[in-house]
Nucleic acid binder design. Structure first.
Lengths: 214, 214
DNA sequence: CCAAAAGTGTTAAAGCTACACCCATGG
DNA sequence: CCATGGGTGTAGCTTTAACACTTTTGG
């Protein structure tokens, strides 16, 4: 077979969720060269039969079992593979941790790892994850992006936990409530959630669940 | 020749500048199918010998004669060409209008056209330009992005004209000055510019000319 | 001395931060 | 009745918006 000089196109997906009060990223173990044995972001080769977005979504569903998630492009880089022309399109996705079912029996052992304490990863995956986390943090301020990390209905406390995990600092409960309610991105539902020996919490929802891309 | 099914990779560049108090985009006339004769964004096929960023930069220099400009990725789309797998990486660039020398003698007749009054363009170029303009507008607020549209030194009035062209609304001169100076992104130089029968204007510069990517 | 653009300060309104007590519930 | 987390208001401070007169220059 002659050396292949036609460009290779691939996607990489930074899958993020909040569990245990921390922002976590889904990593897999590389089972082949290069960088075999290292942790890396999931991804896959593009064969041109579907759109890039569809490929990224499919990879996501394969790893997490979750459909209908927040998916956004990060950037595209060329030249990762020294052997041939290559382009990698990086995405990030936000998923609701409770809905995810990892395929832990697979050879690549998918696992959540906290974004703020990652080991050195294959390629420049640390940088890619850092960029994704920074983008999400910036968008918390002026978009509804947190809807991707939460169920349809949620308490203000749960919403605040998501914000705190991403911003990595505690927020004042009263000010947070006021800011969220006056922002116009969430609204109260008629329902409450009873959970333990205390006053039930009102449930809220995002008024819009459409992504905002700038 | 057999049908080519290996993926085609191309770049598209939205080149923006401010002239006549308006945000303008550089368009070229398409000289071949598809969409022959329509206005479109400049771009070019990637052959894998240089990075995508280098290709976009080169296209930019070819069209404008300007080096050392602000260049940022917008997004990547697949499936523009129905005949084969294709990927297009869209960039936007900011240039200083005064430095540009268009190659008007070329067959494709490059020309500036105001972003707020574009004719229907080839492919989805209208959408791409809209997205670029929106991104620049959003980044005006919290980055030094305007440095790409201005010379090294400039008056506050010139800076304000750039902001007004992009935001499409007038700004108060006094508040603008206070906001800019307290933002810490610009600083006064020792120089002034004399221009006509009025008080000379102090010249300013951006403290940092590094792009901020989120 | 006139025309033209540059430079400057104050006041009111809105928004943000910090902070402590009462409420509803289950056990 | 007690422990637990949910819900609320206010005062000081900072930030933003609106607005008009003086300065420097060239002709």
């Amino acid at each position: 077979m002659p050396p292949d000089t036609s460009p290779s196109v691939a996607t990489i997906v930074v899958i993020l969720a909040v569990t245990d009060g921390r922002l976590q990223v889904l990593l897999v173990h590389r089972t082949g060269p290069p960088e075999e044995g290292k942790w890396a972001l999931p991804g896959g080769r593009w064969d041109g039969t579907e759109s890039l977005d569809a490929l990224a979504t499919r990879k996501l569903v394969e790893e997490t079992g979750v459909a209908d998630v927040y998916l956004e492009q990060l950037f595209t880089i060329s030249g990762l593979d020294p052997a041939r022309p290559s382009v990698a399109v990086a995405y990030f996705a936000l998923v609701e941790a409770a809905k995810v079912r990892l395929r832990e029996e697979e050879a690549w052992h998918p696992a959540w790892q906290p974004v703020d304490a990652l080991p050195p990863l294959a390629f420049d995956n640390n940088r890619v994850i850092g960029q994704a986390a920074a983008r999400v943090g910036a968008k918390l301020d002026y978009t509804n992006i947190a809807y991707g990390l939460l169920p349809e209905q949620f308490t203000l406390r749960e919403l605040q936990a998501v914000y705190e995990a991403i911003l990595r600092r505690p927020l004042d409960r009263r000010n947070f409530r006021k800011r969220m309610l006056s922002s116009g991105i969430i609204e109260a539902t008629a329902e409450h959630r009873r959970a333990g020996a205390h006053r039930p919490a009102q449930l809220f929802r995002f008024i819009s669940r459409e992504p905002v891309i700038l």
